[in-house]
Simulated scan of single mutants.
Amino acid sequence: MLFKDIPGLKAIKSTLTRSVKNSHLAHAQLFDYPQGGAGLSMALAFATYINCENKQEEDACGKCASCAKMEKLIHPDMHFIFPTATSKKVDGKTSEAFLPLWRTFLIENPYRLLPDWLDEIGADNKQGNISVEEARGILRKLSVKSYEGEYKILLIWKPDIMNAASSNAILKILEEPPEKTLFLLVSDQSDKLLTTIISRTQRITVPAFSDQEVREYLRKYNANEAAINQAAYLSDGNLSEALKLVHEDEDDRSTWFAGWMRSCYRYDVSHLVKLADSYDTMNKEKQKGLLEYALRLFRDMLIWSHGAGDLLRVPEEELTFVQNFSKTVNFGALEKMIEEVNTAHYHIERNVRAKMVLLDLSLTIAHFFERK
């Protein structure tokens, strides 16, 4: 992973490369980033730059022996600790046993989330964890001198899920680190870390991707521009979510939502029943996704109703719909619609029959419209 492979975020990249050039490397750094952001990819690019044999002004060379090994994640001075769980695919419980799967997972896409990793290893709904035994074993991994690079580097992904015993074991190592060793803690939920761990790290705050950065990245996948714009709008800087959205088949949420609202406006009960039947056949993630899309558009309509249209991030394809729809409901009705959709989302998450949830929601929303 090189810095140039990560869209945007020039300020963070510049800060990291400058710290290496000026030899101002804190022994423990916390990459604090939003879900689906660039925390993990940025830490990998940083590690690649640190041990690159021919550093360029803004990036690693990508060609030397060190960079070649980092590209495949097989550098002998690069170590990983990450959540694991009992798996049918792997006979073992430590990160070491899962390394082949981990390398493939990261190389394919470094923007995914913990549930994606647990699915990858076949955890069968088990929760991932970093055991205290693994945390205590860090010193064994780092007790010898670096083989090839200037530094030994340990990247810990998702330290926020460690229990108290594991966190305390990590804390002791951070207090007395081995010589020429760097710890890169990568967390999208840093609020769950012990404050004592946070206090012993230098925090690198990695912001969410902008809509434009998400769009530029998605264009590499040859998706149509409408799908790219909708994915950027819905993902809100979460590149993991954006990639899922742009790869979903036949998932034009805007068309579905517009048809649903028109049927509610007309109080077309027959069509609303058919929509509920269709909704019932979808998987839960798609059901939730449609409701989340509805919530987002309803909130955009509230913003438009307040005369703050300049603040809208909605793609042009949906903007006309937002403007026209806002004329059919008043401010109070929009607030009630948001409340009803939130309730429906809660029920879907708790496995209430989807057909009943959507039909009830549709008939309730139908009463909020101002019909001429």
Results as ranks from 00 to 15, higher is better:
residue 83 P to M: 04
residue 336 K to I: 14
residue 255 T to A: 08
residue 165 A to F: 04
residue 296 R to Q: 07
residue 345 H to V: 01
residue 357 V to Q: 02
residue 32 D to Q: 09
residue 355 K to E: 12
residue 235 S to T: 12
residue 281 T to Y: 00
residue 339 E to C: 09
residue 350 R to A: 05
residue 293 Y to T: 13
residue 149 G to H: 04
residue 94 T to G: 11
residue 253 R to H: 07
residue 334 L to N: 02
residue 314 V to K: 02
residue 367 H to D: 06
residue 330 N to F: 02
residue 125 N to D: 04
residue 197 I to T: 11
residue 307 G to D: 09
residue 162 M to S: 08
residue 268 D to L: 06
residue 179 E to M: 11
residue 197 I to C: 06
residue 36 G to Q: 02
residue 23 S to F: 00
residue 235 S to C: 11
residue 256 W to M: 11
residue 230 Q to F: 15
residue 285 E to W: 02
residue 302 L to R: 05
residue 253 R to Q: 13
residue 120 E to I: 04
residue 207 P to L: 06
residue 252 D to T: 13
residue 299 R to I: 03
residue 293 Y to I: 00
residue 29 Q to H: 03
residue 218 L to S: 14
residue 249 D to C: 04
residue 51 N to C: 12
residue 104 T to L: 03
residue 19 S to M: 08
residue 250 E to S: 15
residue 328 T to S: 08
residue 342 N to M: 12
residue 270 S to Q: 15
residue 77 D to W: 12
residue 144 V to K: 07
residue 268 D to F: 01
residue 307 G to V: 08
residue 117 W to F: 01
residue 187 S to T: 14
residue 337 M to L: 06
residue 234 L to N: 05
residue 14 S to W: 00
residue 227 A to V: 09
residue 149 G to Q: 03
residue 39 G to D: 04
residue 229 N to K: 14
residue 186 V to C: 06
residue 350 R to P: 01
residue 5 D to P: 05
residue 142 L to E: 13
residue 84 T to N: 03
residue 38 A to S: 03
residue 26 A to M: 08
residue 220 K to A: 15
residue 254 S to G: 07
residue 27 H to W: 07
residue 268 D to R: 00
residue 22 N to A: 15
residue 44 L to I: 13
residue 33 Y to K: 13
residue 305 S to R: 06
residue 241 E to A: 08
residue 56 Q to E: 12
residue 266 R to A: 13
residue 66 S to F: 07
residue 339 E to Q: 07
residue 360 D to K: 11
residue 372 K to G: 10
residue 291 L to D: 10
residue 27 H to P: 04
residue 335 E to W: 12
residue 133 E to W: 01
residue 269 V to E: 07
